[in-house]
Design a protein around this nucleic acid. Sequence first.
DNA 1: CTGAAAGCGCTTACAG
DNA 2: CTGAAAGCGCTTACAG
Lengths: 350, 350
Amino acid sequence: MTKSVDVARMAGVSRSTVSRTLNGSPHVSPDARERVLAAVARMEYKPDIVARSLVRQQSRTIALGLFSEAEDQALTALSHPQRYFYVELLTSIEGRTVTAGYDLVLPAHRSSDTNRPADYLHGLRARRVAGALMVALDVADPRVQVLLDAALPVVFVDAMIQGAHATYIKSDNIDGARQAMDHLLHLGHRSIAILCGPPQSLTGGERLLGYQQAFARWGIQHDPNLVRPTAHFEIEEAYEATRALLATRRDVTAIVAVSDMMGIGVLRAAYEHGLRVPDDLSVVGFDDIDLAAYTTPPLTSVRQDRAALGQGAVDRLIAMIDGVSEALPLIVPTQLIVRKSTAPPPAAGR
Amino acid sequence: MTKSVDVARMAGVSRSTVSRTLNGSPHVSPDARERVLAAVARMEYKPDIVARSLVRQQSRTIALGLFSEAEDQALTALSHPQRYFYVELLTSIEGRTVTAGYDLVLPAHRSSDTNRPADYLHGLRARRVAGALMVALDVADPRVQVLLDAALPVVFVDAMIQGAHATYIKSDNIDGARQAMDHLLHLGHRSIAILCGPPQSLTGGERLLGYQQAFARWGIQHDPNLVRPTAHFEIEEAYEATRALLATRRDVTAIVAVSDMMGIGVLRAAYEHGLRVPDDLSVVGFDDIDLAAYTTPPLTSVRQDRAALGQGAVDRLIAMIDGVSEALPLIVPTQLIVRKSTAPPPAAGR
DNA sequence: CTGAAAGCGCTTACAG
DNA sequence: CTGAAAGCGCTTACAG
């Protein structure tokens, strides 16, 4: 590897001048700058990122933290199907991070480190990360408090956690659910069920809220028995919940699932129950993962703007790192994508 | 942040001894070792990873490289549905890397860097990565040659590329396709079509080979017209190919798709064509992504052992980094998972 | 504008 | 076994 002293020699200047040129210092004569740049190009010199990080006491690196589960590994949790949305979100995060000139690092740690949150933070500091992006962390996650107390810039994605150096970005779930409900109500549905996921979850809770608000706004009394929580956001749970629902409630003409994967479970239960979607039953999913366009029938879904979420998270974090932005939350609009799984309710009832 | 000099002071030894203790040198007296360890624990000392990397001229970091597409970003390509398998594979890679004590880094780069492969390599060197894991790279990818010429340990995942310091790991695709075919042939199918993906692709090609070999072994003449390539591994292409196939070939009773996502496209086409799966038509997918268990009906699929693939890749790479292993390829067995999408062919034909 | 020097926090021969 | 010293490759006040 060529190093700065080699470049300096070739350009006939000192290492200081090489460094200044590369770091955009105004105190370099045009002549020197030109010679340095020529030498850099000739020798294909790239500054040693490790050495630079050491002296600057900061690396151009952003740590990625995921989820709250008792899993040892970050991405591991993604293997559950209901996590495909987050995968697609990571895609957007990764793209933005990398083109912004930051490395994205998944820090090594022993499983004990996430249990001992101080160790987790130490791990980040030892790596000199410039900031951290924490995706879908539960508020009760032990890492949260230690992160909030630290001076490290943090953006929580899909959570609502704030601090002096920490903020969050998330989709407008309430409005998304409202759009879905307006769509169904306009089509003429009145007996609309919702599979709302775990009662304590933020996204499930907000989407349920939008559901309830829509009824209120339309002046329609809604049946609390049509609100069906599930333990997680699993396909299988949605499938079971739908079976139970369809078995007892013949009046239901539409089901809102708070994720697309759950929507897939609903579709399967409907299919097995002998109901045609959308003729007999309308189904709305949430997230609009890529797969939603390919279910049978293609799923009407509330789109979370992954590009905006990912880019927003990264840009806000980098702005905080650079000190040009406050730690302010960002709420990203959602949009209903109407496909083939919704239609007016059957005239004769089911 | 506490540093080694603080620990040294508290333990009443020199920084050298602190370092030796932490790095497992045998030349430390039990007494000194104990005092150092106590001080480390008390002060929650973690060695600065950046400084350590600089002096060791190597970081405990593994770079992750993905795909060959003209995409600027690595994970970006994953947003296509057919890439869910790789996502699940990454999960396994990440878990193993992180618990092995290595950071996984997605290196920042300008898009030009992948076009100028020398720059890409320089980027890795500048980060002092210990090795690289390249997933699903096309042999023609410009980075391949420069990586092969470098002394950097590299493991190619799902590719067949070797060099002095480079090797690969992949699934036994041929045998997987053979298992799928044996299953169908045993059930009594004879007119079996295959959607084999792009003609030049390694995985598609190998799976096609297994398909052909099975016919040969059973002594059955197979109809080359039932081999249907698609431009990529897209759901939509499989859907279209199946429509075309079903429209003209009423004799076909089983379809093998070389990915689960393509299998989903087949299921949809069959459904729209009014065919019941598996009564009228059997369908086999490939990869066994998590979703395969949740299609309608659940998809029989050839499982790629993601855990073995991911762990094998990481372990082999680390062994190469540590100099305890040669650059030898690894072929991971596949296994047919029989679910509900396969059954004997209809007695009366379709 | 420019260079010599100090320093980032570690590790590792080198003496002892 | 142990410590003082040198060095990893940069950047950045400090003089000039």
